[in-house]
């Protein structure tokens, strides 16, 4: 993970550039940009377990949707609820769900893990689709968006596209920072080590099950964070938010962006949703077929994801610098 410092620098630059977007772009693009950022956040959250942990989960939509439903269910109809308590509550609900589902699913391996997570995800989907908890299959409106206010003073107006876009951007930037730190930390290295060679990781003394459960919980919480803001943006929650179709879509974004980096899935989400928009306009009847073809080509031609194009242009991001001695040797060489 020697390229992570460069990745962090590049991500910081990109986020600064994105923060300037409201100066130039009309509201429609800001809304689209916020959607990309939030779906990208869900994909980044998923990638913590898929790319770094080697655990292919098909229930992350459930964590995404659960946070949205939590907000919808606690939001009063005519006055705004404060973000300061609805956000922790919604993210907490997703984290608890991830902890429970992870605790059971992580006892299985490989394709069984995929099937078990799929089953748990669908259970939560049907919980909202087939009962009257929140409007059943019709979904449920959030009539009043939560407010970001302190002592009656509105800090950011989430009803305005610019305010919402910048809030989403700040949230995604903070989550990216968290994920960059986490994957570089001893915890993140242990998670990756268990993926690369579980037997060796355990023999060394790493508590692999607990490490994976912690990662799965953090991942579910971050997916919930994305789902919370997505439901704020659209003012509406529906069971489809929790369905396996969305789980699979963000998995495709993870693969499109490249599994090896924190920010790759964000690039994958931008590529996927951008392409979807373009193809919908160009081929209103056959856009899905065209999108599938492009995804297939990317996976076949760019196994490292669309980031490989950027790597080709800017030099590799994931180049590993040899540790210790060679660096000293290089310094010696420049001194001579």
């Amino acid at each position: 993970m020697g390229g992570s410092r460069r990745e962090a620098a590049l991500a910081a630059l990109t986020f600064v550039a994105l923060a300037l977007l409201p100066l130039a772009a009309p509201a429609y693009y800001l809304q689209f940009g916020a959607k990309v950022l939030l779906v990208g956040l869900a994909a980044m959250a998923l990638n913590l377990v898929v790319g770094f942990g080697g655990l292919v989960s098909l229930c992350h939509a459930a964590f995404y949707g659960l946070a949205g439903y939590t907000l919808a269910l606690v939001s009063p109809r005519y006055e705004a609820a404060s973000l300061f308590w609805t956000l922790p509550l919604a993210v907490g609900a997703s984290a608890v769900a991830a902890l429970l589902i992870g605790a059971l699913s992580l006892r299985t391996r490989g394709v069984y893990f995929i099937m078990v997570t799929l089953a748990f995800g669908q259970m939560l989907f049907y919980l909202f689709a087939d009962t009257d908890i929140a409007g059943g299959s019709d979904g449920f409106y959030i009539y009043t968006r939560p407010e970001l206010a302190l002592g009656g003073l509105t800090l950011v107006d989430l009803d305005k596209p610019t305010g919402f876009y910048l809030t989403a951007l700040a949230t995604v930037a903070l989550a990216t920072l968290l994920l960059l730190r986490l994957t570089r930390s001893p915890f993140g290295q242990a998670l990756a080590a268990a993926h690369e060679n579980e037997r060796r990781a355990r023999a060394l003394g790493f508590p692999v099950y607990r490490i994976r459960l912690a990662a799965f919980t953090v991942s579910g919480a971050l997916a919930g964070l994305a789902g919370y803001f997505a439901s704020v943006q659209f003012g509406y929650v529906a069971p489809q938010m929790l369905g396996w179709h969305f789980s699979a879509t963000i998995l495709v974004m993870v693969v499109l962006g490249g599994l090896g980096s924190v920010t790759g899935p964000l690039v994958g989400a931008a590529a996927f949703l951008g392409l979807e928009e373009v193809l919908k306009a160009a081929l209103p009847d056959h856009w899905a077929l065209a999108l599938g073809t492009v995804i297939l080509l990317v996976v076949l031609l760019l196994p490292g994801g669309v980031r490989q194009l950027a790597d080709a242009a800017l030099g590799p991001l994931s180049r590993e610098r040899p540790p210790g001695k060679p660096l000293a040797a290089a310094e010696g060489a420049t001194g001579a």
Binding site: R181, R184, S185, P186, F187, A190, P207, I211
Partner: peptide
């Protein structure tokens, strides 16, 4: 290490 699973320090 006592910090074998520390989540926020730099591993290297």
């Amino acid at each position: 290490s006592p910090r074998a699973l520390a989540p926020f320090r730099s591993a290297d």
